[in-house]
Design a protein around this nucleic acid. Structure first.
Length: 268
DNA sequence: CTGGGGATGGGGCCC
DNA sequence: AGGGCCCCATCCCCA
């Protein structure tokens, strides 16, 4: 399972925003970063060729993406992972699947009629209004049914990337993802492109040799905090990742995976 | 083969 | 809304 746990996979009502809204601009790290690291002239790399940065149309339809989600309609609400992080809705989510398009067997008018027939208070003036489409209903149950079957389901937007098949529950997440395709942050030294400025900053450290993260135990320095964290595990008697079968612990998840794949589970 | 370091990707959170 | 940072994860390489 990749880390893209916000990726929606099974919603069918994908909508795609106006790509012009998502246009990103190439980011060049300020030249002062290179002043202390003189480099010879670097030939223009392939990735910087005009072809590599030719405009690409990403979105396929002009859905009204500038309209925010209705208040109180958080696509992420209710999906919390064991780690306390937000997780995607389960693939088996049928709420959108059951409601693709206008195939509902019950029309709005029928809904209202049924509400009136089944509710003695329906005779009163219609006073329950949908805050999404402004339709009014005489009973709360009628409104609730309408929202469950129509408006709420229709508001559950998904944001699709045209570069790949990924879909996201928010435009912000999609914008972030788009950067992984456009790679707007380019290293002036070697021409390598990155999706985000801080990734580029980390890469530049590989050129400058800067290692701002030091191990308090052995004073070994690292350019990346994550690598320091992994290194700290090597100082720990009890490693973070433990084999369920033999209880052997490992400093890295990848090492545990290797261990499991090597046949521990078979041997024990 | 195993363990560890280096480099990088990517989503979330906070400001 | 966007940038910066955090955290997790993965791949590659080497001793």
């Amino acid at each position: 399972m990749p880390r893209s746990f916000l990726v929606k996979k099974h919603f069918n009502a994908s909508k795609k925003p106006n790509y012009s809204e998502l246009d990103t601009h190439t980011v060049i790290i300020s030249p002062y970063l290179y002043e202390s690291f003189p480099m010879p002239v670097i030939p223009k790399p392939e990735i910087l060729s005009s072809g590599a940065y030719s405009p690409i149309t990403v979105w396929t339809s002009a859905a009204p993406f500038n309209s925010p989600l209705p208040s109180g309609l958080s696509p992420l609400a209710g999906y919390s992972s064991p780690l306390g992080r937000v997780s995607p809705p389960p693939p088996s989510d049928t709420s959108s699947k059951d409601h693709s398009g206008s195939e509902s067997p019950i029309s709005d008018e029928e809904e209202r009629l049924q509400s009136k027939l089944s509710d003695p208070h329906a005779i009163e003036a219609e006073k329950f209004q949908c805050n999404l489409c402004n339709k009014t209903y005489s009973t709360f149950s009628g409104l609730a049914k309408h929202k469950q079957l129509h408006c709420d389901a229709q508001s559950r937007k998904s944001f699709s990337c045209k570069y790949c098949d990924k879909e996201y529950v928010s435009l912000g997440a999609l914008k972030m993802h788009i950067r992984t395709h456009t790679l707007p942050c380019v290293c002036k030294i070697c021409g390598k492109a990155f999706s985000r400025p801080w990734l580029l900053q980390g890469h530049i450290r590989t050129h400058t040799g800067e290692k701002p993260f030091s191990c308090p135990h052995c004073n070994r320095a690292f350019a990346d905090r994550s690598n320091l964290r992994a290194h700290l595990q090597t100082h720990s008697d009890v490693k973070k990742y433990q084999c369920k079968n033999c209880s052997k612990t490992f400093s890295r998840m990848s090492l545990l995976h290797k261990h499991e794949e090597s046949g521990c589970c078979v041997a024990h």
